[in-house]
């Protein structure tokens, strides 16, 4: 029940519910650790009357809002719960040694391995929903079953959305026009709230904020990436996101991953960066065109991750100080 979980958990799950709460007199940040049920108990009848809140009615409208938003966003949430990869073989023809790999939604999986080791072929297998009919001989299952044909041939429903370092905006549009166009192509009718949501999220991720009137082609690298990620998280219908290396340039990567995961995506992330690689719940090691092994991120590695995050912060602050024209005297 949505009135039993904490408001912050609710917002993690359905970030767009923020708009609803704000417009209905509940401060989403003021009572984050309370559930809506407890929140309504904590305010007296007078205040409720003043705010015109009827808890029962409020919850039922919120339920309706969420289900409408979910169908607007094409995320009926039931569609793709898990992705399973069954082994095929290496470039040499030798069988892959893992038994099977099941990735659930909200999970982050890193993919590591040298350039040319077969990362894009793995992505290709997922995208094409391989049925032992691709060069690797792998098989992909969706929700534990053979995937529906639509994943191969439908133009509007692709399994995988991609985010990469090399992508640029090429359309001659403002941020607002661009998002409207994307929303329109997804047949979303209540565009304004979705656009506002994406813009807010993008600005949370980007170091420097931008407005909806900014032309997309004049956004900085970090701003572009932030907008691409927020847009893909909220507007793209694809249940699986493949990230091909996101650099640290002007974007909060942890928040970015959290946003994608909170939108119910399965996140696969090809990376050479230790911070990103360890942010995953597990990592796939690729070698010679095959999946060599799958490693669960250990407790020790999580400790190491916080250490390198500290180092990273230090480097960031040095960068900031140099930018401001300071002379460095210590690290």
């Amino acid at each position: 029940m949505i009135d039993q979980i904490t408001i912050s958990a609710l917002l993690d799950k359905y970030p767009f519910a923020r708009t609803f709460l704000e417009n209905n007199g509940v401060d989403p940040d003021g009572s984050g650790e309370q559930s809506l049920h407890d929140y309504f108990l904590s305010i007296d009848e007078n205040t409720k009357e003043e705010m015109a809140i009827d808890p029962g009615h409020f919850i039922s409208r919120l339920n309706e809002y969420i289900s409408q938003m979910l169908s607007f966003l094409g995320e009926t949430k039931s569609s793709v719960e898990s992705l399973t990869i069954l082994p095929g073989h290496y470039k040499t023809g030798e069988d892959e040694r893992f038994s099977d790999l099941t990735i659930k939604k909200n999970e982050i999986i890193s993919i590591v391995g040298p350039t040319g080791s077969g990362k894009s072929r793995l992505l290709g297998d997922i995208e094409w929903a391989a049925r032992n009919d691709t060069p690797t001989g792998r098989t992909i299952l969706i929700n534990g079953k053979e995937p529906e044909k639509k994943w191969r041939y439908s133009s509007s429903e692709k399994l995988v959305a991609q985010l990469s370092q090399n992508m640029n905006f090429v359309m001659d549009l403002s941020v607002y026009e661009f998002l409207s166009l994307h929303a329109e192509s997804r047949l979303i009718t209540e565009r304004e709230s979705v656009i506002e949501r994406i813009l807010d999220q993008a600005n949370l991720l980007a170091g420097e904020s931008f407005s909806k009137d900014t032309p997309i082609t004049s956004l900085s690298g970090g701003q572009s990436r932030a907008l691409m990620i927020a847009d893909t998280a909220i507007l793209s219908k694809s249940p699986i996101i493949l990230i091909d290396e996101i650099e640290n340039a002007g974007i909060d990567r942890k928040k970015a991953l959290n946003l994608l995961v909170s939108e119910g995506k399965i996140v696969l992330m090809a990376t050479h960066d230790p911070i990103l690689a360890l942010m995953g719940d597990r990592r796939i090691v690729i070698k010679n065109g095959g999946i060599e092994t799958i490693i669960e991120t250990t407790e020790k590695e999580r400790e190491i991750l916080s250490q390198i995050e500290e180092m990273d912060k230090k480097i960031q602050s040095l960068r900031q100080r140099l930018r401001r024209g300071e002379v460095l005297t210590e690290v």
Partner: peptide, 18 residues
């Protein structure tokens, strides 16, 4: 040339083609 434009632009373009 889908590798150099954003996911959104790819989706919009494909939907126009569709």
């Amino acid at each position: 040339k889908g590798d150099i434009v954003s996911q959104a632009e790819r989706e919009v373009f494909a939907s126009r083609v569709h």
